[in-house]
Design a protein around this nucleic acid. Structure first.
Lengths: 140, 140
DNA sequence: GTCAAGTTTTGGACTCAGTCCAATTTATTG
DNA sequence: CAATAAATTGGACTGAGTCCAAAACTTGAC
């Protein structure tokens, strides 16, 4: 039995061709949009509906199999690296997205200077900048 | 002459009723959406087109008069507090948004653990959680 | 104060990402 | 293998924002 099948079963998720293909697509696209993942899936199993893509990605995010990030000015991105507290670095010019570990150790990000009585459950950090490739073209 | 008029002039922005009203609306709505600001403006000057709202807010952001934040699952919010490096704390349940100062002093947020050769110009931090009011209703 | 030139504002069409819904197909359990 | 519950499909729809051309303004020069 394939790893992916086992993964779904252990999470109590019925195994379908679409879900397996989405899992596979995520492995090839570390930070793909729903549309990009749909394309990847179609290249493997022929077709998948928009709705199934969103259903699948949504339930995977709920079960903790995937993480969804929603950067300003971009559709949501999905990534398979979960369970750690890493953040993202995004190029303003080309959208290239890379993972970065938390700057200040393990999980200190969760402490805001003044929490206004909120119970904080996540600190989302996005570093914006310019990637090496775009630096070259813009300074020319 | 009004403060707002002076502010626009010093930034070389032609003064129009719409722009003055947007400036005024921002003062009343510390974290408003484009739509909320449009409503506020309409209550003051009668009407404003969608396009003008976006033009105005967009150019104000460019000139540094306003800051735009784009939290996941919400339309963009605009705020008048600019020039400092503060972050935001957002309630997942009701969307309430409050300002928080940078947790780690002045501007250390700009240092990622490993920058992959990027030139970073901004660290955007959003703390997600539940506000006091929503805590009460959900734990009941 | 008036005029010309260049911006803004308008409103309507349009795009993009994502959601909603009913009908059909599929996976799982007994 | 049948019954049931769940997933998939496709098409309509929504919300946020952009694009465009025409009309209305601000501004700076006279």
């Amino acid at each position: 039995m394939f790893e992916s099948t086992k993964l779904l079963r252990t999470h109590g998720i019925p195994v379908t061709a679409q879900r397996l293909a989405v899992l596979r697509a995520i492995r090839e696209q570390p930070h793909g949009t729903a549309e990009a993942i749909a394309e990847e899936v179609r290249s493997k199993i022929g077709s998948i509906s928009k709705q199934s893509i969103y259903n699948t990605l949504g339930s995977f995010v709920e079960k903790g199999l995937l993480r969804r990030i929603q950067p300003a000015g971009s559709p949501a991105l999905y990534e398979g690296r979960v369970g750690d507290n890493h953040h993202h670095l995004i190029c303003r010019a080309c959208g290239k997205t890379v993972d970065v570990d938390c700057a200040v150790g393990k999980k200190p990000c969760l402490t805001a200077a003044n929490d206004a009585g909120f119970v904080i459950d996540e600190a989302e950090v996005i570093y914006w900048g310019t990637c090496p490739a775009c630096l070259v073209t813009t300074t020319k």
